Amino acid sequence: MSAPTSEAAKAYWKENLRLMFMLLVIWFVVSFGFGVLFVEQLNAIQFFGFPLGFWFAQQGAIYVFVLEIFFYVWKMNQLDRKYDVDEQ
């Protein structure tokens, strides 16, 4: 593991922030958008016997958040290797 240069550190942080922002937007859309704003429209659709809007509000947002955690870890491992800051 070598110490990153100032430019590499800035690029690494910029990519990290872009990834976090993208994941937070997805989580916001799923949790607030699907669970609150569009709940009436989604409730017209049944999912495992429950209205889809209710499912997103109660469980869907949590599932998406957990999946995003695993995705973030996977992408950050790739980013660490790209900028040679991974732990081996």
Rank of each mutant, 00 (worst) to 15 (best):
A8Y: 02
E15M: 12
F34E: 02
F21W: 14
V36E: 05
F32Y: 11
R18W: 11
K10S: 11
L23M: 08
A9Q: 12
L24C: 06
F34P: 01
K14V: 11
S31H: 11
F34C: 02
L17D: 08
F21P: 00
F21C: 10
K14S: 06
M20P: 00
L37D: 10
G33Y: 00
V29K: 00
I26M: 13
L19I: 13
G33R: 07
V29N: 00
R18A: 15
V36W: 00
A11I: 09
L19V: 12
L24E: 04
L24N: 06
F34L: 07
V36R: 05
W13M: 15
V30N: 05
I26E: 04
F38Y: 06
I26W: 09
W13D: 14
F38M: 09
M22L: 12
G35K: 01
M22K: 06
L17C: 15
M20G: 07
W27M: 04
W27A: 04
W27L: 07
F38A: 07
M20A: 12
F34Q: 01
F21R: 06
A11K: 14
F28V: 08
E15L: 11
S31A: 14
F28H: 08
V36Q: 02
N16H: 13
F21V: 15
V30P: 02
L23T: 07
R18D: 11
K10L: 14
V36G: 01
L17E: 10
V30K: 05
A8D: 06
N16L: 13
A9E: 07
V30H: 03
M22W: 03
Y12W: 05
A9Y: 09
V29A: 03
L23V: 10
S31T: 13
K10T: 12
M20W: 12
S31K: 10
L24Q: 05
L24S: 05
M20F: 11
M22V: 13
L19F: 14
R18P: 05
Y12V: 09
M22Y: 03
V36H: 03
Y12A: 05
F21T: 15
E15I: 09
I26G: 05
A11Y: 07
M22E: 10
F21M: 10
L37H: 10
F28R: 08
Y12H: 07
V30G: 00
Y12L: 07
F38V: 03
L37T: 14
E15Q: 14
A8C: 03
N16Y: 08
F21S: 10
W27R: 06
F34I: 04
F34A: 05
A11S: 09
W27H: 09
G33S: 03
G35Y: 02
M20T: 14
F38G: 01
N16E: 05
A9N: 11
F32A: 01
F21N: 07
K14L: 12
G33K: 04
A9H: 10
K14H: 09
F28N: 06
V30I: 12
F28P: 00
A8I: 06
I26H: 06
F32K: 05
N16P: 01
G33V: 09
V36N: 03
A11D: 08
R18E: 14
F38T: 04
L17I: 15
